[in-house]
């Protein structure tokens, strides 16, 4: 097990902090965060609501600038968003005027990849997320769960080194959410990528993660890290699962 893990560090975050300057006051959202992520690792950022998870993710993806500290991807400093990073956003972010196909092939298209190649790619990822047959549907013709699948396919289709997912399932009903958790694991095992996944749902975190980073309240810091080496696919009701769940929930309660 230890041997087939690739130990290369792909993403590194050094002394990152973030303050937002509004008219009357400054709000310190991120305290001081150091983090290293290995290639093909599935890392879950887990923390209470409004603690700064989205802000952290935006800093990692380059959408937001740090106040102090630096982020490195493949040893290059992150200063702006780029195609080596893919993001699945918290809110539905599909372009309503494009079909499923149009949305998924959008990234390669912006990068100027020729039509035939990008269509093939898009078709592959559309099939991977289980939406074959819906290529020509518009977003308003498909369900919420399907929309997030398109969002995932769109991020994958650009073939980024790191995928950021910001509570992608938070708007879904419980049933669909379980299903999507299984799906994302299936996809990740088939198409290995480094994934940084944000959630405030402990079951989701435990089901998915190689490693859980527990965040404190605002200004957020890393409270504790848990390496989760339960075998996959994980059973929500196994003793180990429940034990970890209790431990982390307990620890989180103290942060509140």
């Amino acid at each position: 097990m230890e041997q087939d893990r690739n130990l290369d560090i792909i993403l590194k975050c050094e002394n990152v902090s973030k303050k937002f300057q509004t008219k009357h006051r400054t709000k310190e959202v991120i305290g001081n965060i150091n983090l290293e992520v290995r290639k093909n690792e599935f890392v879950v950022l887990f923390g209470p609501g409004q603690c700064g998870k989205t802000t952290m993710l935006n800093i990692l993806s380059g959408l937001e600038k740090t106040t102090t500290g630096k982020v490195f991807l493949n040893d290059r400093e992150v200063v702006e968003p780029g195609p080596d990073r893919g993001v699945v956003f918290q809110s539905i972010s599909l372009y309503p005027w494009l079909t499923v196909m149009g949305n998924v092939e959008y990234g390669p298209k912006v990068r100027g990849i020729n039509k035939k190649v990008r269509k093939e790619k898009a078709e592959y990822y559309i099939e991977l997320v289980g939406l074959k047959g819906f290529e020509n549907s518009y977003p308003n013709q498909i369900s919420g769960g399907m929309k997030q699948r398109v969002g995932i396919a769109r991020a994958y289709c650009n073939e980024p080194d790191v995928l950021f997912m910001d509570e992608p399932f938070s708007a879904l009903d419980a049933q669909t959410r379980y299903l999507m958790q299984e799906e994302i694991m299936r996809i990740w095992e088939k198409e290995k990528r480094t994934v940084i996944f944000v959630t405030n749902n402990i079951e989701e975190a435990l089901y998915l993660a190689d490693r859980i980073i527990l965040f404190t309240n605002c200004p957020t810091q890393i409270k504790k890290e848990y390496v989760i080496d339960l075998p996959r696919p994980r059973d929500y009701t196994s003793d180990d699962f429940l034990k970890l769940r209790e431990e982390i929930t307990e620890n989180m309660a103290h942060t509140l």
């Binding site: 993806s61 380059g62 959408l63 702006e80 968003p81 780029g82 195609p83 990073r85 893919g86 993001v87 956003f89 809110s91 972010s93 372009y95 005027w97 494009l98 959008y106 990234g107 912006v110 990068r111 769109r154 650009n158």
Partner: peptide, 25 residues
């Protein structure tokens, strides 16, 4: 929508592309 512009930025879209491919649609 801001998130639509973010998506374009993560894909490396220029400001002109954002106008013609996102804002105008």
């Amino acid at each position: 929508k801001e998130v639509h512009l973010w998506v374009a930025r993560t894909f490396g879209g220029t400001r002109n592309q954002m106008l013609f491919k996102i804002a105008i649609p």
